[in-house]
Design a protein around this nucleic acid. Sequence first.
DNA 1: AGTTCGATATGAGTATTGTTCATGTAAGCA
DNA 2: TGCTTACATGAACAATACTCATATCGAACT
Lengths: 311, 311
Amino acid sequence: MNNTHIELRHLRLLQAVAEAGGLTAAAERLHLTQSAVSHQLKSLEAALGLPLVERAARPAQLTAAGRRLLALAHAALPQVDAALRDLAKLKDGDAGELRIAVECHTCYDWLMPAMDSYRDVWPGVELDLLGGFQADPIALLLEQQADLVVTSDPTPRGGVTYAPLFGFEMLALLPPGHTLATKKWLLPRDFAEHTLITYPVPEDRLDLVRRVLAPAGVKPPRREAQLTVAILQLVASRRGLAALPAWAVAPYLERGYVVARPIGKHGLWAELHVAVRSADAGRAYLADFIDTVRRDSFARLPGLRPAIIQP
Amino acid sequence: MNNTHIELRHLRLLQAVAEAGGLTAAAERLHLTQSAVSHQLKSLEAALGLPLVERAARPAQLTAAGRRLLALAHAALPQVDAALRDLAKLKDGDAGELRIAVECHTCYDWLMPAMDSYRDVWPGVELDLLGGFQADPIALLLEQQADLVVTSDPTPRGGVTYAPLFGFEMLALLPPGHTLATKKWLLPRDFAEHTLITYPVPEDRLDLVRRVLAPAGVKPPRREAQLTVAILQLVASRRGLAALPAWAVAPYLERGYVVARPIGKHGLWAELHVAVRSADAGRAYLADFIDTVRRDSFARLPGLRPAIIQP
DNA sequence: AGTTCGATATGAGTATTGTTCATGTAAGCA
DNA sequence: TGCTTACATGAACAATACTCATATCGAACT
């Protein structure tokens, strides 16, 4: 009689809709089509005899029934994950070594908290963060100096397996009150007359230069700074413009310290991936680290979207 | 990577296997074939890369991995049920009236505790137990005197909807040391020379008489008693034989007060069903009462099996 | 108003996966 | 050693989840 055939899939769906704020965005996160999400939600609502999502509102609002089911999802899904983790430990053991190399300056912002959550559930894994900027971190991987690399360039290489983390937007930063702040988004020529403030990395590693300015033939003067705060300080004091990931500047935007604009009409989007040795790809503690980072990032960082590029 | 596609279905399966003590028994409870259960379990084990059930042992033993997943099931499934109940309340309201009529003397044994658990989750429903033995309780249902009837006879009647509760075995009771106790099971003629002690109901309501003794032309003398303990006392003091549901006599068997034997090689099995007015069948508080009773009974009563008879 | 754009809905077709049916195999018990 | 009970297996079938292509809807902007 009360044969409501609800499944974990439905809970994950509802959670994704709530977190992503819409069916379409949820579909991307779940690696499904928008149609699949719509159909699935509809059939669930039909089975329950109750609407779960207020379709009109944006971002999509859950109904009272939807919120009750979401509460169930929040209670149950972590338990499921924990159980699967325990099973993985039963299978492969709960110890391991995980030396992480990062090729991106701002990545520490989200990597450190993610590592903290990870440590809680895999206390047996020895976590290490390799210091210093690495020119070719993938080499470290193959030389067994590192076990996991965070990179923005998932070009296939022998013996290396990539997994996508997320896509994020690079925002152009202007001092408050700057003339360009009147525009909704910036074009390559808007950078021409300004100094570009960047981390100390080669030009071909800068997405803004490589994918936007260079193709347009714009070559602004550059000035380098080591730290994110230093870059922001230089922008705020009108020494030039910069481009940083949305998540890295969100706190400064809130305080009005600098102003951000998309680069190009659709924005400049970049992605992060992790690389591991293919031989290690099956290890549970490694796979779960990647899951943890991804989950943690989507929960913590603003303006993420799923990665699209296939290695 | 860690894409273990586990679903609530799997948890319910594992719980059924653990409770029923075997794949075949679990299949019956889930209203599936044994084959389906075997396939499903196998695919789950393959997905996890771990065996969950020790097939050799009887009753089927869970492995460490199986026990971990079972723990998850015990934690998660009640939360799911609670959520579905809340949704049902959102949909249909949380109040109602539920007057229960019972046509079986021993049913109070399990009905009262089940009503107690039910009261906890549906405090808004007014529960009433109609007293006295009813000749035709279905009539009460149609006259709006009762809202739910427990019966062993689900013959279709207009305006009445039946739902199966469970099947149970009627055991013949002998005093300890009785000659018949040497047999593994009793045959109709074994009853011929003994007084049959029963509740005060017409003969055609006694399964033993109707389905076993009458067809064999055996007509033993009868003696009636109102209470279960009285019947047991009479058997123990060698005034005759009786037949009662296995669950009703289990505590007395443990203490060796009486001895029980199956009736016929395969035992005499009876079933209980509930009847509600078809107009009410959709009401959430009613449907959930039936679920509660069924769950509660299987958890509490020994030797149950799913009902087979279709109304 | 009309147009455009982003988001959701829908219907038909396909793919996947769950279930049954009909057997086969292994282990426990007279 | 047969008999019985429980589980496994493979092929056929059924259910259902997903995608593709397209329609509809609503808000924002001329």
